[in-house]
Computed example of a mutant assay.
Amino acid sequence: MKKRSALFFDIDGTLLSEKTKEIPASTVRALQKAKQEGHAVFINTGRTLCSVPVKIKRLAFDGLLCGCGTYIVYQNEVLFEHPLPEDHGYEYIDRMRELQIDGFLEGTEDVYFSERISRFENVESTRRYMASMGLGVEVAYEKKGFRYDKILICTDEKSRKEEFFQAIDKDLIPLDRQKGVYECIQKGYSKATAIEVMRRHLELSMDQIYVFGDSSNDLSMFEYAKHTVAMGEHDPVLEPYTEYITDAVEQDGIEKAMEYYGLI
């Protein structure tokens, strides 16, 4: 058996197929085998805790690293949490409306949409998706009275996005997710900082860390780790930092990668 390692997985496009919206049986099998071999398995996601799908939570991961490093749970114990300062968070809500920015706010307990119908269909489709999980239906973000960790914004020619980026600069960094969509994550926190917290907590070496991802918001953990697995369908930005490219999630990519490294 390989020495005990810690495996960190993105969700969308890595564990959860974006085509079938399901977790392949081979992935479930591989995760179970990895735990039997003594490895620790973690979710490492841009999603905040509330929006991690139940089907993912049922897989009994050792820990959930959420919100791009701003909320870390290990064996049901919260090791770390860092929401935005309350006054700053409210300021950004006001600036969104003023600068013709739309989107939603992501917190540990809930997600928050505007009380107004968005001109962006992807905001409304996300609202419907979140509502199907019981999220984003109770408190409109104009009402305030809550804290959150990050912002997902949509922009178009009406949006004064550069002014918005300047307004959030003291706390947030915008990651370009293409087509006018930006994921605004907290400065100083990332999927990489989350792994470092767990690596130190578990007293592991860098050689015992494996990361699996497919998108641009996985870049920090690919830059951080030595053993990096990109899914068959992945953002090219990951390639300079990728050690191994596996097949797509629907083609048993996770199981094949674990077998390649001798983890299972």
Rank of each mutant, 00 (worst) to 15 (best):
I117R: 14
G107W: 03
K35W: 14
F165M: 12
K187R: 14
L219Q: 13
M198T: 05
A194M: 00
D149W: 00
E223T: 12
F165V: 09
F212T: 05
A25C: 03
K191R: 13
C154Q: 15
D110E: 03
E239L: 11
K21V: 11
C154S: 15
E121V: 12
E106A: 03
D247G: 03
I23N: 07
S216K: 14
D207T: 10
S5N: 14
K143W: 05
D149C: 09
V52K: 05
S114L: 09
R4L: 08
M231W: 00
A257T: 11
K21I: 03
N44C: 15
G232Q: 12
E37I: 04
L105C: 02
I11A: 00
D235S: 15
Y112P: 03
V181I: 13
T126E: 13
K170E: 15
R29T: 13
D169C: 07
G89A: 08
Q36I: 10
A257P: 05
I117G: 02
I254S: 00
S215H: 11
K187V: 09
A140V: 08
E196S: 11
K57F: 00
N76W: 00
K226C: 00
I11H: 02
E22A: 13
G262N: 10
Y74V: 12
K170G: 12
F61K: 10
D218T: 02
F165Q: 10
Y210T: 06
D218V: 09
D218S: 05
A257W: 08
L16W: 12
K19Q: 15
K179C: 08
F80L: 09
M231P: 02
Y148R: 07
Q186K: 13
L204V: 09
K2A: 01
E121S: 10
L31W: 09
R47I: 07
Y148T: 04
P53S: 01
E18I: 14
D149T: 11
E163L: 13
T228G: 00
G134V: 09
C66P: 08
P53D: 02
I117H: 12
S215T: 10
T228P: 04
Q166D: 14
D156C: 14
G69Q: 05
K179F: 13
L15T: 06
M231G: 03
H82K: 15
Y90C: 13
M1A: 11
K143M: 13
F42C: 05
Y189T: 03
V123F: 05
Y182W: 04
V237Q: 12
T155Q: 01
Y112H: 08
F61G: 03
V139P: 00
Y224I: 10
D10Q: 01
V211C: 10
M221I: 15
I209V: 14
I23H: 08
E121F: 02
A225V: 13
Y112E: 05
G107H: 04
G213F: 08
E86K: 14
K143S: 14
K21C: 07
Y210S: 04
R128L: 11
L263Y: 14
A25I: 15
D214W: 04
M96E: 06
L65D: 08
H82V: 10
N76G: 02
Y148W: 06
V197C: 10
E37T: 06
